[in-house]
Nucleic acid binder design. Sequence first.
DNA 1: TCAATAGTTCCATAATATCGAACAATTGAA
DNA 2: TTCAATTGTTCGATATTATGGAACTATTGA
Lengths: 97, 97
Amino acid sequence: MALSDPMRLRIIRSMVNQQGCMSCTEAAPCPNMAKSTLSNHFRVLREAGLIHTEKRGVEHRNIVRLDDVEARFPGLLKTILAFSDTEDKERWRAPPP
Amino acid sequence: MALSDPMRLRIIRSMVNQQGCMSCTEAAPCPNMAKSTLSNHFRVLREAGLIHTEKRGVEHRNIVRLDDVEARFPGLLKTILAFSDTEDKERWRAPPP
DNA sequence: TCAATAGTTCCATAATATCGAACAATTGAA
DNA sequence: TTCAATTGTTCGATATTATGGAACTATTGA
């Protein structure tokens, strides 16, 4: 699944929070991520129908297909995006059993 | 992340729908899944703090730690479980661009 | 005591994320 | 026009992870 990957989730999060188009570089989860890796994630997101990409000049403008995603996964984006990005590592650490 | 894997998601789904304890075999996503694979998924879920496992006789009884999960990921389980299992393949197929 | 059952552990294989290097396309400046 | 800079893509290699099979452990019941 396209949204299974933590990095792709962070990409989507960036784009939704921005409320508009972003270039691939702008939406990168971390500044030191390799261009090839980033490009691959955007390809997966595109092929999954989660984002739309439009070539504008030298860069690619990407936008989340909010309506389509909401239609297929009602409430999912809203729920996932409610978790702040910076706390993810903390959040995923297991509490004592 | 423990919930990133589709198989683990189906395991959790089984357990929540059952509203109680399930043995590892009972909660298996598919009947032909190898025992070792299943065991590994349960270990990941345990270590992530998503389920609690208790040895009872020859089998292990597992239960989803609903309160803990809800506290860490408000609304996540409810949202994810709203997607019926059998339609997942359809759902994850991309719509036309 | 012993066979059957339920999981675990270990090793090998397949799928996927990641990175670096080379490449293509577009823009803007010399 | 020509060329350097910018933005992504493609390709090959490596690391991580899911999967399956075989051997093992623990527990139950005959």
